[in-house]
Amino acid sequence: MTVLPKDIPGDSLKVTVGTANGKPGDTVTVPVTFADVAKMKNVGTCNFYLGYDASLLEVVSVDAGPIVKNAAVNFSSSASNGTISFLFLDNTITDELITADGVFANIKFKLKSVTAKTTTPVTFKDGGAFGDGTMSKIASVTKTNGSVTIDP
């Protein structure tokens, strides 16, 4: 049996954390987006972790974005102690894959008090994996961190 590389060099799934701005007490939304989904033969499963400074940001909610089908079954998240974990699994293993680019999740943060303008990162942590529509590992994932700026 011969195994051929399935990824064209330079191609990767792009996962990007967005940015937001606000004043202390505001609730802002930071999107997590996927790009080049079709090039990577869709997404059938993924789990990953984001870190944030809990002294500056309070997670209000984490909701599935419009590219997630049947989110009540296929999407899960949790947030505590400065870490947000995400889990997606197409429970049907074929019919509810992520097949389009767009917003995977929206994180709502309540901004805490600061004395001066502060930009705090929302960054990928170690761990996690992504699988394509056949549940094979997506070897190349380009992750881009985001941030939230609090301006009193």
Score class of each variant (00 low, 15 high):
L89V: 00
V141L: 06
T16Y: 07
N81V: 15
D53F: 10
I107W: 00
F104S: 04
G133R: 09
L87M: 03
N81S: 15
K143Q: 02
T99Y: 12
E58A: 10
K39I: 09
A139N: 04
F34T: 08
F88I: 04
V62N: 08
C46M: 14
D36P: 13
V68D: 10
K6C: 14
T94F: 15
V37E: 04
L97R: 03
P24R: 10
S61A: 12
D126Q: 15
K117R: 06
K143C: 00
I150Q: 15
N74L: 00
L13T: 09
G128E: 04
K125I: 03
P121I: 05
I150N: 14
T33R: 11
T115H: 07
L111W: 09
A139S: 05
T115S: 07
D63A: 12
K39Q: 09
K6V: 12
S76D: 14
G51A: 10
G102Q: 04
V17Q: 11
N91T: 04
V28R: 10
A38G: 14
F130G: 00
G131D: 03
A79M: 15
K41M: 14
A71Y: 14
P9M: 13
K39N: 13
E96I: 00
V28A: 13
Y49R: 01
A64D: 14
A35Y: 07
V17A: 11
D53P: 13
T123C: 06
K108W: 02
L50G: 04
A129Q: 00
G102A: 03
K6F: 13
K137H: 01
G127W: 03
F124P: 01
Y49S: 02
V73F: 06
V103N: 00
V3R: 11
I150K: 08
V141N: 05
D95R: 01
K14M: 10
N70G: 13
T120A: 10
K39M: 08
T134R: 14
V30F: 12
I138C: 09
F124H: 04
G25E: 12
V43C: 10
L4N: 14
T120E: 13
V73T: 07
N47A: 01
N47G: 03
G51V: 09
A116T: 08
A64K: 06
I138N: 02
T123V: 07
N91Q: 05
F34K: 10
F88G: 01
P66V: 10
S78A: 15
G133M: 04
A116V: 06
A20I: 11
K14Q: 13
